[in-house]
Amino acid sequence: MPISHIMASGMTGIRAAGDLVARMEFSKNMRIGEAKEYVAKKLNVDTMDLSDEHIMRELREELDIGVITSVPGAAKGIAAKMNIEKLLDIKINSCETFRAQIA
């Protein structure tokens, strides 16, 4: 069932930009339209492009914010999230925790 929803309505997470839009909804209480516009502006794309795997695959790799495959040397996990923090101008708790641990 979750896959049915993802196929019917989802932004498909890190295949496109679903995680980024979700982060703006949760971190800044942004409604869907505002969240998409915010992310699109930060990525310099149209809101329609946020669900476009073709555009986002290349862009995510370029911005080093994580992709679904194991690109050698590309940021993953915490490293990718640290890049997302900078890109969206937000703080991510797991990154904060990580920074506190290495300080």
Binding site: M7, S9, S51
Partner: peptide, 21 residues
């Protein structure tokens, strides 16, 4: 059989119960 939202209208899909699924 399956239908979907118009392109550009997609929304985040979150997952209650998550891993237990």
């Amino acid at each position: 059989k399956a239908v979907s939202v118009e392109q550009g209208m997609e929304v985040p899909v979150t997952h209650d119960i998550g891993t237990i699924r």
